[in-house]
């Protein structure tokens, strides 16, 4: 089923980050059917891609950025699969919503619902035990995500 994105007000747009984002990335941001959250630190955007399927009904977006030997991946989805036997797992507070923090094969992960959309962040490091890749860093990255736009934010298709 489709999630209904709840768009933040335009005043929350990270205009400074938008101004520093590569044009190709910004073009993808503005096609996203869900609010796009990206790292507030523009260093993550220097080697980055943002994928929004060329589809009349894109699911959301996938972002990949690299900084030093760290790789950051963000997925946002509005296509939820409803499985009656799973029900509702509320989780713990994450940003303004609820979700969980985890580690997968050394890849640190956060998942949560915000703006009515399912978001997920993965942080992977060559040395997954490095201090620059610990749980605190992931939480800081998640907390530092900023709203940079989406189709509805720029008056595009909703």
């Amino acid at each position: 089923m489709l999630r209904v994105p709840q768009w933040p007000p335009t005043s929350e747009l990270a205009q400074e980050l938008r101004a520093r984002a590569p044009a190709s990335l910004l073009a993808a941001v503005d096609r996203s059917p869900v609010p796009v959250l990206l790292p507030g630190d523009p260093s993550w955007l220097a080697r980055a891609d943002l994928y929004v399927p060329e589809d009349p009904q894109p699911f959301g977006y996938a972002f990949a950025g690299a900084l030093d030997e760290r790789h950051l991946s963000i997925h946002a989805s509005r296509f939820a699969t409803l499985l009656p036997h799973i029900g509702h797992v509320r989780g713990d507070p994450v940003r303004s919503g609820f979700g969980s923090f985890s580690v997968n094969e050394g890849v640190r992960t956060a998942s949560w619902i915000e703006h009515g959309v399912a978001y997920s962040v993965d942080l992977e490091c060559f040395d997954h035990e490095a201090p620059t890749c610990d749980d605190a860093v992931l939480r800081e990255l998640v907390a530092g995500l900023v709203y940079v736009g989406g189709a509805a934010a720029v008056g595009g298709a909703r």
Partner: peptide, 12 residues
Amino acid sequence: NIKQDIAGVGYV
């Protein structure tokens, strides 16, 4: 892994 958006849970 397979990761996907599950209603009631999120992208998991």
